[in-house]
Computed example of a mutant assay.
Amino acid sequence: MQQSTTTGEVRPHDISIADRIVLRFADACGVAGVSINTMRRLVTAGRGPRVVRLSERRIGIRRSDLDAWIESRTSAA
């Protein structure tokens, strides 16, 4: 989230479009090029991107978090 330059508060309309996009878990795995099981293991171990609970039985990953995670893995290699 971005802070307002005048008041310092965070407002929802200041959030970029990329921060609003949430991919379904399976779609995020496809973008990252890993299997669903591998991504589950990485997330459970705390080594994957942050997940967002979409409902009781569905999770997703923000596109911006996925991109940052992929970049961190790319630069570490």
Rank of each mutant, 00 (worst) to 15 (best):
M1L: 04
M1R: 08
Q2K: 15
Q2G: 08
Q3M: 13
Q3A: 12
S4V: 07
S4I: 03
S4A: 08
S4D: 15
T5G: 09
T6V: 14
T6P: 02
T6A: 14
T7I: 10
G8Y: 10
G8C: 06
G8Q: 08
G8L: 09
E9H: 11
E9N: 09
R11V: 06
R11N: 11
R11A: 13
R11Q: 09
P12V: 09
H13T: 00
D14W: 14
D14I: 06
D14A: 11
I15Q: 14
I15K: 12
I15M: 15
S16A: 10
S16E: 11
A18W: 06
D19L: 08
D19A: 15
D19H: 05
D19S: 15
I21F: 04
V22T: 12
V22M: 03
V22I: 15
L23Y: 14
L23G: 00
R24K: 09
R24F: 09
R24W: 07
D27I: 02
D27L: 03
D27C: 03
A28D: 04
C29T: 05
A32F: 08
S35W: 04
N37R: 10
M39F: 05
M39E: 05
R40G: 00
V43L: 06
A45V: 00
G46P: 04
G46V: 00
G46S: 05
G46Q: 07
R47G: 08
R47N: 09
R47S: 09
R47K: 14
P49I: 03
P49V: 01
V52N: 01
R53W: 02
R57K: 12
R57H: 14
R57V: 12
R57D: 05
R58E: 12
R58N: 10
I59D: 04
G60W: 01
I61T: 03
R63I: 03
R63D: 07
R63W: 05
D65T: 01
D65V: 03
D65N: 02
D67F: 13
D67P: 05
A68V: 00
A68W: 03
A68F: 06
E71N: 13
S72G: 10
R73Q: 06
T74C: 11
S75L: 13
A76D: 12
A77M: 12
